[in-house]
Amino acid sequence: MNQQLTTYIAITLAVACIAIFGIKLDQELNITGLKSDDCCTDEQLSNFQLTFDRTPCYGTCPVYSISINNSGKAIVMGHGHVEFEEIILQLTDEQLRSIAKLTYAANFYEIEDIYKQGERGCERYSTDSPHSVWSVTSGQYSNSVDFYYGCNNTPQTIPLMEEALVSFMGLENYL
């Protein structure tokens, strides 16, 4: 089974577990060679930061941003075509750990940093779609990714991570 399909299956299962059963992701996340022991120790969570921005499209796509810091404070800002202006949440340690583990399971720290029109990995694309811009740091790992939703034939890691994050934080009804 190729790496992209394996990652897709793992993220889909993670989303299902979180959304349907509300369970935490404590099992080994060995998709990228990283294991639970490599992820989410108190020391690694001490510098955990996640920022996510969903940009406008030509139409009524939701425009919002999410930031989560190492204390579990999550701020969701609505910028357009959403049902809120600001939502502030306090995540538990287990919720924060689960979100961090999801980034490991998604192979986030090893994927390309840009998927946008005309760049490598996005030679074929449709126009007028939004971007999602991510930056995540956990322990010694850090990556930033600019993903254009109009790219064809790109890894589905980023859309699945967004879906999982939105579901995990209970934001589906607001977007």
Rank of each mutant, 00 (worst) to 15 (best):
M1I: 11
N2E: 12
N2Y: 10
L5T: 14
L5H: 09
L5S: 13
Y8D: 15
I9Y: 03
I11L: 15
I11G: 00
T12M: 06
T12F: 08
V15K: 08
A16V: 00
C17G: 09
A19T: 08
A19P: 00
G22K: 12
L25S: 05
L25R: 01
E28N: 15
N30C: 14
N30Y: 01
I31T: 14
T32R: 08
L34F: 13
K35R: 11
S36I: 14
S36R: 12
S36F: 05
S36N: 09
C39H: 06
C40I: 07
C40K: 08
D42P: 04
Q44L: 13
Q44V: 12
L45P: 05
S46A: 15
S46Q: 09
S46C: 09
S46E: 11
N47M: 02
N47Y: 01
F48Q: 07
L50V: 13
T51L: 01
T51Q: 09
F52A: 01
D53S: 10
T55P: 00
C61P: 05
C61H: 07
V63Q: 13
V63Y: 06
Y64V: 02
Y64C: 03
Y64I: 01
S65E: 12
S65L: 03
S65H: 05
I66E: 06
S67L: 10
I68Q: 08
N69I: 04
G72K: 09
G72R: 08
K73H: 11
M77Y: 08
G80P: 02
G80C: 04
G80L: 04
H81F: 15
F84I: 06
E86V: 07
I87C: 06
Q90F: 12
L91N: 02
T92N: 08
D93M: 01
L96Y: 08
R97Y: 11
R97V: 02
A100F: 06
A100R: 02
T103Y: 15
Y104A: 12
N107E: 13
E112T: 03
I114Q: 09
K116Q: 12
Q117Y: 02
Q117H: 01
E119T: 13
G121R: 03
R124W: 00
Y125M: 00
T127D: 11
T127H: 09
S129G: 00
P130F: 12
H131N: 09
S132N: 05
S132H: 05
S132T: 15
S132E: 13
V133A: 02
V133H: 05
V136C: 06
T137M: 08
G139H: 05
Q140R: 10
S144I: 11
S144N: 10
S144V: 10
V145D: 07
V145W: 10
V145I: 15
D146S: 10
D146K: 04
D146A: 04
D146T: 13
F147V: 02
F147K: 00
F147W: 13
G150F: 06
N152W: 04
N152D: 09
T154R: 03
T154I: 06
Q156I: 13
T157I: 12
I158V: 14
E162V: 05
E163S: 04
E163L: 12
L165W: 07
V166W: 13
F168D: 13
L171D: 03
E172V: 02
E172Y: 10
N173G: 14
L175I: 11
